[in-house]
Amino acid sequence: MLFTDLYTYSLVGLGALFFCTGTIGLLRFPDSLSRLHALTKADNLGLGLVVIGLLPQTHWPLGAMKLIAVWLLAVLASTTVGQMVGEAIRRGVPFR
């Protein structure tokens, strides 16, 4: 059992690390577009790692399928939002 726990700890930790980088990117990057880039890339990757890390913990196959579905949906949502916000920025809607 030790191996699966170790595996989960390492992957979830890595995923959390990616989330941190994404947040630091959000805070530090100069303009909105680059912030958008940081968010969509880092966070999605972080989420993927967390999901993979949690796979052994859940009931196979249904629980795993649900986790992956969650990840896919999150990716789909963030890309769409990223696109729309990008278009809005390009059109010059002042974002405070």
Binding site: L76, T79, Q83, M84, E87, A88
Partner: peptide
């Protein structure tokens, strides 16, 4: 206010699910 292709894609992909 502005027609957006990304939203159209989402509109087609997400609703069935």
């Amino acid at each position: 206010v502005q027609h957006s292709h990304a939203l159209t894609l989402l509109g087609q992909l997400l609703p069935p699910f």
